[in-house]
Design a protein around this nucleic acid. Structure first.
Lengths: 226, 226
DNA sequence: CGCGAGCTTGACGTTGTTCAACTAGAGTGG
DNA sequence: CCACTCTAGTTGAACAACGTCAAGCTCGCG
């Protein structure tokens, strides 16, 4: 991990409600950090000292538990911001973030961030809206992971990767079979078997890191039926 | 449901950061509503028009999905406040709330609530902290429900009921076996069987609506091991 | 060429659901 | 006071879903 104290010019949508002076203060203090693929950006349990803005690259958000089981919650990329529920609570990270590709990030001091929230009501409001969206997503995740069978869960993951992460019906990914398993709450053996089934049914095509969704409507149907 | 336009004098902890004038505005507009056991306080999907403060009684928070499966997320009671992630997003309810007992609530106009958030920074900050706590709880729920087996999940539910809801190792509950099943993500048959096992092992005693936790340490162990 | 990590396959066992039947207890009407 | 009914609770057997384990495969890389 290289730690260049660079000025960062990127402006997350999130910062729209900041005035020029506030933006200037932020710019003066924030700095760029590069991560190589596979490197840990921060670890669950460690201190939350910075809010991180992703300038470039994809990252995995991991929920780890005491029994060494891991849920891959989502993939973040430009222009996402990574804060985490430690903000204004215990100031610790409640998930780990690992670079999936080479990643360029911008670190913003959390104390400064808090000062912005306290001094700028629209900014605070947009943070509240953001947190509520997160909660809605978690509700959906909870329902999907507990109520659906493997087929449905894997279909969800494939649709998520295609629609949100790679924004194409065809993609090559650095995610391993185990990563996909952790996204869908199943074992990698089950991922492989279910992918094989989907392939046999002509719903997808896949080989190694290459995926192509052939029948999205069927996949959506499987997702819906669970 | 009776709708008495009563003044409400109760002051949730949440309102600590309001000044006297703000508190006065709130008091002038909020009103009390009584619900009988089993009545729906609000329904998932409906419009979020009021933030609800529970003055008396216990309520069930239900996450419903399209396939008629329901997760009982938690039990709320005095002095909890029910808002929901619709606030400042789509202004809809993302869960249903049903009275478990006769319940006395206080309705606060959500527009007024929003005005308070915008005009009072510490209030906004405490809302942000509250939302982050919710997210942390959801992370735990997600880990527990997906990674643990039935024994562990039911143990979690029993500990939750004993520690948080009834605050006693011994309690009589209006929750049915199906409610307990929905809290633990299992069928009511499985709840009955697992309760029987716990009883046979001398970990708990239960008959009908009566529960008594005999060996909490063992229950905690089961919860931990999953 | 050989090594190792990730991928794949099959056999097997466990976990948990489904379904159908049965029971207990609370209310209801005669 | 006794049928009658209704709902929640309970039980058992059969089955489906899914994880585990062990072995073999593939492919990139030194």
């Amino acid at each position: 991990m290289q730690n260049k104290v660079n000025r960062c010019e990127a402006k997350p949508v999130f910062f729209n409600s900041l005035n020029n002076e506030q933006l200037k203060t932020v710019n003066a203090s924030r700095f760029v950090v590069h991560f190589k693929a596979g490197e840990t950006i921060f670890k669950q349990g460690s201190a939350l000292t910075h809010i991180i803005y992703i300038i470039e690259g994809k990252t995995k958000v991991l929920l780890e538990d005491s029994n060494n089981r891991t849920i891959l919650l989502k993939i973040l990329k430009q222009p996402d911001i990574i804060g985490g529920p430690g903000f204004s609570t215990d100031y610790r990270h409640h998930f780990s973030v690992v670079a999936l590709e080479d990643t360029k990030t911008c670190f913003i001091d959390v104390i400064l961030f808090k000062r912005l929230v306290l001094s700028n009501q629209p900014f605070a409001m947009s943070l509240i809206a953001y947190l509520n969206h997160e909660i809605i997503d978690l509700f959906d995740k909870l329902k999907d992971l507990t109520n659906k069978h493997m087929n449905g869960r894997l279909a969800d993951t494939l649709i998520y990767l295609s629609d949100d992460v790679y924004q194409s019906p065809e993609f090559t990914t650095l995610l391993s079979r185990s990563d996909i398993a952790n996204m869908s709450c199943m074992t990698n053996e089950s991922v492989i078997r279910t992918l094989k089934d989907f392939k046999a049914d002509g719903i997808i095509n896949c080989k190694g890191s290459y995926f192509k969704i052939l029948k999205k409507d069927v996949l959506l149907d499987i997702s819906k039926k669970g």
